[in-house]
Every structure is written in C-alpha cells, then in structure tokens.
Design a binder for these strands. Structure first.
Length: 699
DNA sequence: GACCGCTATATTTTT
DNA sequence: TATAGCGGTC
C-alpha cells in the first residue's frame, strides 16, 4: 500500500465506526475503497463474506469485484458486493413470504409499470388531463424514495383524485401480479426489517462492515436501509463527493453526506483532495465553478498533473455551427494523436445530440451515442425473455399476456382479458396452466394457445440444459422470429441479432448454475447490452452522452456544448430555485472534471428547441470567472448580420425586427461587439437578441 | 385486426 | 421540430 497518499492511507486504515470519505473527482476513490476492504481482511482479520460493498451501478459493482480480486486474490471473491437493488433482491428472495409475496415474485420494469398505472387510471375512469399517469407514478416513486408505504403516504388530493388511494391500488395490483417495482426492492427490504425484529436481527448479524460508494446519491429509504443493516455495529464507511450529487430529482438527498458527521456521532472524516486525473488548468476551472455553491463540504482539488492548456470557451452562432466547431475540434485532437474513444461530447439534454449527430455524420467522424432504450427494455428482448421464462417454468401472467398474441394467434383484447381471468381463476402458475392448456384441459380462447402450449411442453425437457437450444427452437417454431420479418428486413435483422446476443448471454450466465428465477433477476437489474456481452465500448468512436451518464467516467478530451442559460442551468431547474441551480452547477462540475487533458465549452447565440428559437445568454456558471481561467475563442460570425449602431438604442427604444415586428427594448447588456438586448415584441413576445446579429432597427 | 393520421410531448434516468 | 403512441375507422 506504499502507493497511497497520506489521506488515502488514513481512510484505508481508519478504525471501526462510521467513516466519511470525501473523495473529490479523480482522487482515487475506488482505489481507496478497495484498499480499505483489503486492509479489513488482511490486517484486521475480517472474513471476506462479512463485508458488504454497496454501489449504485452494476458496472461499479463488477469493477469493485475485479479490482479486489486483483489486489487480494481469491479472498476478493468472498466479499459481498452489488447494487442496493441487487442486494435487496437477494434478501427478498429469501424472506419474501414474510411480506406475503411468493418467493417466485418477479421485478416489473419501467414500461410494464407505466402500462399498469395507465390501466388503473383507465379502470378508475380518470382521464389523463385530470391526472397524468406519469405524474401519479412520479408521486408514488417519491413516496417510496421517502420510505413511505401507501398507508404512510401523506393524503394528497389532486383534482379531486385521492393519490394515496391509487398508490394503494397500484400496490395491490403489483401483488396480484406477483411483481415488485425497482423502488419496492429497497422499500420492502426496509419493511422487512422494520416489521420483523427477528429478520432484522438476523440481517444485522450478517455483516460486520458495510461500505457504500457514491454516497451522495442515496435517498432516504436507502439511508434507512443502511441504518437498519448496520445498527448492530455501526461499521459504515461511505465514500462520495457532495459536489457530484446530481440525482436530487430522483430522490437523492445531499444532506445524507453533508450532515453525515451529525447523523453518525463519532464519525471519522477523510478528505481526498489530490486529483490524479486532470491538468491544473482544468481543475482551476472546476474549483472556480463549484466554489460558488454554498452548502458543501469545504474542499478543493489539488492538481498532481501538469498545468496544461487553458480550457476553451467558444461562442457559436447556432447549434449547427456549434456542432461543426465541435467536429473541427475533435478532428484537431485526433490529429494531435488522441484516439477517438478518448474523446467525449457531454450534453445536458439528449435532444442536443440531434444536431451533433447530423453534422458529425456529414463530417465523417465516428461517434456512438450512449443512452436511449436499454438492451433489456427492447421489445424483442422482453418478448424473448417472456418465452424463455415460460419455457423454464418461471413465467408469470404478465409474460404470458405479453406473448400470447405474438405472433398473431387471433387473440385480441377481449381474448386476453378472458385468458387472464381463466388463468387467475385456475390458481395455477402460468407455466402450469399452460401445461393444462396443452392437454386440452381449458376451453374457450385458451384453445388458441394450445399449439404454443404443446410446443413449450415438448421443448421443456431441453430447457435448462447446456447448450440451451430451447429458446431459439421455441422462437423459431412458434413463428415468433418470422413475425419479426413483418417489421421490415433491416429492423428484423437487428432485432434477431439482439436475440442472438441474448442467447449468448443466457448460455454464459446459465453456466454458473443459477436457477431460472435468478436469471430473470439478473436480466431485470441489468439495463445495458454491454454487460450482456455486447461490447461497443472499445469501438473507435467519440462518445456522445448526457452529463448524468458521464458521472464516474473520464476522457482525455471533453467538449461540453450548450453552456447556456436555459440549458445549463436548465430552464426547468430554475423553477426549483437555489437548490435547483446548485445541482445544475454540480452538473457542470461533473462535466469539467471528466476531462484529463483538454476541455472545450461552447455556447450558441441561437438555439432552436422544439421549433422555438431561443437567444440564450452564456451560462451564469461561467460568468464573472477570472479571465485567466478560460480562453475565449469567439470567431467572427458567419451569419448575415446587419451592423447596428447601438448608440441609437437603449432601454425603452422602440424597434423593428423583420420577422418579429414591432417591439420595445426592455434590457441592454454587454458592450462592444457583445451587446445583447431583450426586446418585448408586440406580437412575438419577449426575445433576447444578439444585437450584432439581429436585424434590429430603431423604429 | 390493421392501418393511418392526429395529438401530446419533449431534462437528467445509476436500478 | 420530431416522434411515439393512441384512437378512430375500415
């Protein structure tokens, strides 16, 4: 451990009791956790299986495991590590019955969850304009994040609708379908411990040490989860950075890390402030930006790398100009010897990728967009998994309903209702019921399922054996694969390709001799195809993704487009007042600190969003920075601009614009070439214009 | 049951 | 401005 710095070493060797490790961006956070775990095992004699390491993503959990094995060998494998959700699910599998759930319950995904809420609202005859499904779901999630069951949730009347009642209905329906949603995984674990002292005690005795990564992102129910689990020993080590708390909108409460020392009396605090990632110039900018936030642990990153080049700030004409400038910059970095995969463009809103995509394609630069529909959320993957689950004897009613008419079997909405009623009336599990159907033991519409049921019954002996040929045979012979062809050749090919990826993943995973339901758990908790064996990470291409997705990653060269008022900070965050702006500032901080060597920020003078034209001001976050921190690069605009003599105009002047018509200036800002005016147009409303480019005339 | 056209909607989305 | 999903109609 000779290569740890003093602060890291102190954190690694800190004794029992609560420990807070404030780890700035690029300060060797993961190394420190791993070494601390290693220290607990080798120096303190803690048994590996009595250590629990909690993360937020599967990727982080996997990295932890592999680096731990690297450091301490086989013992690393004994450490229990996983996401909050994965660990919770494992506990719930064992104790589900205490919550009146069958042990074979499944996890419901976001799509099915939304469909369920929609159905509930429809049944209750509540139209979307009175209560929007996503609003209801958001409210329920909010309650769950706060650790509130339907009974404990606050009474809430929305347009005469009782939200708490609907929350309760939603839970009932989930239970009837034998499903839990993602938030339930955590909340139900907490309920288990709240309501069953014996289980709580057993779980509290299970681990001697708990370590949590990305602690700034914990929400109240996760906090309670941790509090309950380590109630016996209080050996809780949390690692995080309050300056990187960007999930407040998902219920994360930054106070858990800000007030850690108050919440956990006697806590030790360790600050990791030496940054091994970025150049000094990049860190100077990061520090300058984040220091404007008020509620934060006082710390600042120190560079260990060379000072490097100043980050650049470029003002562009519009989003297409911005994209072109970015393309030029990326090419310049490439010419300087950087690989494409060492570059990233990180934006606030996914919509920003549109113009970038278009221009980068025109310029012939390789890029990949991260985001969008996750692998396991794809239609064909969900279908294939439903078939697989039914084949392997763990499918449920939702899965049967999903595939009963795919391919077309002549079962319409009415038929599906009938099937659902028959199935639930039988009291059988879906696959048992299907066997009954195969034998011709069910009448009515169910008859239309008989061929499928018989096919499944005939293939079932092949299920669970390796190599697993059952699924592909089922999809082929049931006509499912053929039904994909109806979507067009290209699309069908890509979907079938995805199914083959799934097939490989199934075989790979089943080698570990896990049960079908455990396999379904993994699929439910995984979201990307990367982990499923599709590896486009190493592709030779520039990465385009949202700032949120970029947390935890690093690149040699980073571009942050759209550093503007309205986008960063986002308009919608401004409504949340100071707290909203602080989180947006942290988002910019996260973006800046992703860069190792080169950083470029851009701003557009004109940005079209949803068909509306905006004239954004540069972000407040980069205003009033010392001029030595950013190299401003503002080329002469190419727009056909009319030169105005601003001397003729001022606040109150009447003006005329060729497309917006008559208006009056209500604000004036800037000087020289950078004058912005805010104009109240009589018909077009308030617009901000760059005087130099606006064809604005004194009227 | 399929198709077409209208309309609602657009911040971020670790699980 | 772009798109997905829904509802109406054939």
């Amino acid at each position: 451990m000779a290569d740890l710095n003093p602060a890291q070493l102190a954190a690694v060797e800190a004794g029992d009791g609560p420990q807070l490790i404030l780890a700035g961006a690029g300060s060797g956070k993961t190394r420190t956790i791993i070494h601390r775990i290693g220290h607990l095992i080798s120096a303190r004699g803690v048994a590996p299986h009595r250590i629990l390491a909690v993360t937020f993503t599967n990727k982080a959990a996997a990295e932890l495991k592999s680096r731990l094995s690297e450091l301490i060998g086989d013992d690393g494998g004994g450490v229990v590590s996983g996401t909050f959700h994965a660990i919770s699910l494992r506990l719930l599998r064992r104790y589900a019955e205490a919550l009146a759930y069958p042990r074979s319950f499944q996890v419901i995904d976001a799509d099915d969850q939304k469909a369920l809420v929609k159905r509930i609202l429809k049944q209750a005859n509540i139209p979307a304009d009175r209560l929007h499904p996503s609003f209801l779901l958001g409210w329920i999630e909010h309650c769950k994040h706060a650790g509130q069951t339907a009974e404990q949730a606050p009474a809430c009347d929305w347009n005469g609708v009782d939200l708490r009642g609907l929350y309760s209905t939603y839970q009932q329906q989930l239970r009837e379908h034998e499903r839990m949603d993602f938030s339930d995984l955590i909340l139900n674990c907490v309920l288990l411990m709240r309501e069953h002292a014996d289980i709580a005690e057993a779980l509290q005795r299970r681990f001697d040490h708990i370590l949590v990564d990305e602690y700034q992102d914990t929400n109240p129910v996760q906090h309670e989860w941790l509090t309950l689990l380590c109630a016996g020993h209080r050996n809780l080590t949390v690692v995080g950075d309050d300056d990187q708390s960007i999930y407040g909108w998902r219920g994360a409460d930054i106070r858990h890390i800000l007030e850690f020392e108050r919440i956990w009396s006697g806590a030790g605090t360790h600050r990791l402030e030496e940054n091994y990632r970025s150049t000094g110039a990049i860190l100077d900018l990061a520090n300058a930006v984040i220091s404007k936030n008020e509620d934060r642990h006082d710390k600042s990153l120190r560079a260990t790398q060379e000072q490097g080049l100043l980050p650049q700030w470029q003002v562009c004409n519009d989003e297409y100009d911005e994209a072109r400038q970015i393309g030029t910059q990326l090419q310049a970095w490439r010419d300087a010897g950087y690989a494409w995969q060492e570059m990233a463009v990180l934006y606030r809103s996914n919509r920003q990728s549109l113009a970038l995509e278009q221009i980068l394609r025109e310029q012939g630069l390789p890029y990949r967009i991260v985001g969008g529909v996750g692998f396991f959320e794809r239609l064909e993957i969900k279908d294939a998994l439903a078939y697989w689950a039914l084949l392997n004897g763990c499918g449920d009613a939702l899965q049967l309903m999903r595939i009963c008419n795919r391919p077309k079997r002549g079962i319409g909405l009415k038929g599906q209702e009938q099937l659902a009623a028959q199935l639930s009336g039988s009291g059988l599990r879906a696959h048992e019921w299907l066997d009954l159907v195969a034998e011709g033991g069910v009448g009515g519409v169910a008859g239309k399922l008989a061929p499928l049921a018989r096919l499944i019954a005939s293939l079932r002996p092949q299920a669970g054996t390796l190599p697993d040929r059952g699924l592909m045979a089922l999809l082929q012979e049931s006509g499912y694969l053929d039904s994909l062809q109806a979507m067009g050749e290209l699309e069908a090919a890509s979907r079938i390709d995805n199914i083959h990826t799934l097939q490989r993943y199934i075989e790979l995973t089943m080698e570990q001799e896990i049960t079908p339901i455990e396999f379904m758990d993994r699929a439910a908790l995984l979201q990307s195809g990367e982990e499923a064996g599709r590896d486009d990470e190493n592709e030779e291409s520039v990465t385009l993704m949202s700032l949120h997705r970029a947390k935890g990653l690093e690149f040699d060269c980073v571009v942050l487009p759209g550093v503007e008022e309205g986008l960063l900070p986002h308009q919608r965050a401004l409504d949340d007042g100071e707290a909203g702006i602080a989180e947006e500032r942290r988002l910019l901080y996260v973006g800046i600190t992703r860069a190792r060597r080169h950083l470029k920020l851009t701003t557009a003078r004109v940005r079209r969003l949803f068909g509306e034209t905006h004239y954004p001001l540069p972000s407040r976050f980069i205003k009033n920075l010392p001029p030595s921190m950013l190299q401003q690069d503002t080329p002469v605009a190419t727009a056909s601009a009319m030169q105005n003599n601003s001397g003729d105009m001022g606040v109150g002047s009447n003006v005329l614009h060729p497309s917006f018509g008559e208006g009056v200036i209500i604000d004036f800002e800037g000087s020289g070439d950078a004058i912005r005016v805010t104009v109240q147009f009589r018909k077009a409303g308030i617009k901000r214009l760059m005087l130099k480019y606006a064809a604005l005339q004194a009227a």
